[in-house]
């Protein structure tokens, strides 16, 4: 294994070990989105009766919600973890080793993506057990996992940026409700063309999170839709580039060593 891969592996291992040793960081991020999905599926099932609703199973529509929510938790984990490293001086310890700076973030992101990947598998397993239909078949499941990973990277990048910039786990936690607002002001609960209020529909149309939902959902409900997939992957990649670039710049400022 080359040096960068080895260092990335060790940093990713640290991220995963830390999460596994805190049940509070494992159980709620998996359970809470599933509970939310259960409530939505049983409470909003009647929405499938609305003319134009794309499926007669609200579960098929709602399964994307926990996936995005899980990625959101990854952003909080990544941000809090790196902010705590700033706060405790652990980042200085790392900066004093000859490790490649890229490995610091690569390791963190790899760890968070791995956790998001396992969470998505659990959501899918629960979904299939509850009768989820998957229009794009097995290949679609693989593409969905890839998109989920990219979304997790995007959100983890944003979280790491905020964590490194502020150096405060509390500040990262403080941003959480704001990110949650983005989740709800999107097409997460209803297709955009069925949102009655104009302001909500306009906000959901401008909200990039809508296209993440729609990309994931297209694979489940419709099969292969090039436009939805391109927008989903495109917005996820754009947010990931922004987040990773921001985090890299913030890290460079934090460990301004030659």
């Amino acid at each position: 294994m080359n040096e960068l891969a080895l260092q990335t592996y060790e940093m990713a291992r640290r991220s995963v070990v830390k999460v596994l040793r805190q049940p509070a960081l494992v159980i709620p991020p998996i359970l809470f989105p599933l509970i939310m999905m259960g409530i939505n599926v049983s409470g909003l099932d009647a929405a499938t009766e609305i003319p134009g609703f794309p499926t007669d199973s609200y579960l098929d529509f709602a399964i994307a919600f926990p996936m995005i929510q899980g990625a959101l938790f990854a952003s909080i984990n990544a941000g809090s973890s790196v902010a705590r490293d700033v706060e405790t001086g652990f980042l200085n310890r790392l900066a004093l080793t000859p490790m490649q700076r890229a490995a610091m973030l690569l390791g963190l992101f790899t760890g968070e993506m791995l956790i998001a990947f396992v969470s998505t598998l659990i959501y899918l397993a629960v979904g299939f057990a509850a009768g989820l239909h998957f229009a794009s078949g097995f290949a679609g499941v693989l593409v969905l996992l890839a998109l989920s990973l990219l979304i997790a990277l995007a959100f983890a990048g944003l979280g790491a940026f905020i964590g490194l910039r502020t150096g405060s786990p509390e500040a990262v936690q403080g941003v959480f409700p704001l990110l949650f607002v983005f989740l709800f002001l999107s097409s997460g609960s209803l297709p955009r063309d069925l949102i009655e209020h104009d302001w909500f529909r306009i906000v959901a149309t401008w909200n990039p999170v809508s296209y993440l939902f729609e990309g994931l959902r297209s694979l489940i409900i419709f099969g292969w839709q090039a436009r939805e997939l391109a927008l989903g992957f495109g917005f996820a990649a754009a947010i990931a580039v922004l987040g990773v670039f921001g985090a890299t710049t913030a890290l460079r400022t934090r460990v301004a060593v030659r």
Partner: peptide, 19 residues
């Protein structure tokens, strides 16, 4: 500057690798 969730051995493993 230690990570409260890692063991002493974990720290040593990380430090020896990164060094």
């Amino acid at each position: 500057a230690l990570d409260p969730l890692l063991t002493g051995q974990d720290h040593m493993r990380l430090q020896t690798t990164l060094q």
